[in-house]
Amino acid sequence: MLITELKSKESILSLVTGKVFIINCHGCKEVRFPEAEAEELEKELLASGKVTGVLTTDYICNPENLKLRLERRKTMIAEADAVLVLSCGVGVQSVAEFLPDKKVYAGCDTYRLPGFQGVTPLEVNCDQCGECFLNLTGGICPLTACSKSLVNGQCGGSKNGKCEVDPNMECGWERIYRRLEAVGRLDALKCPVQLRNYATDKDV
């Protein structure tokens, strides 16, 4: 199980500089979604005239469901410079995978709770670290896509785009780099040095 918390308003507003399409996921009933805070943020963004559309749905981790809903809102998404996803890390990564040319941002941090995990079997995975890195990595989680869970870029162990630990696994940072390149966000690699915070658990 997991809990999602809204990132700080400053950090979200710093990402939403142009037009934005918002996706809220009210999936998994066991998940605590910060509904009231998300609504408040949404109101503020709507008032600023930046929002091209809002989709509030459930289980965006279900590819069929996601595809259906996003295709219906194709125009609104095309008008937006970025898509802001308020969901767990799996949801953000599912949207990023579906919109390969779009900037996709995570509005939430995902924390771990004991108990069973998500029900949709997927390639993408969320480590529920409580300090979501997806906004720096183009919507691909470095903790689960990189065998060393590195947060500061590619190591020297990638060969022909594959990870040297597992030749069947794509190098996560190769994927992240290509993605950032495709959405024009290579500047994210110039962010300050990232340090993991393993103390997030105690805050839940």
Partner: peptide, 21 residues
């Protein structure tokens, strides 16, 4: 360290820049 003959040399250069920073 840096890997100049890597097949993803642009990602290596980006990492090198982070190391310089």
């Amino acid at each position: 360290v840096v890997s100049p003959c890597s097949d993803s040399v642009d990602a290596q250069l980006a990492k090198m820049e982070r190391k310089v920073m």
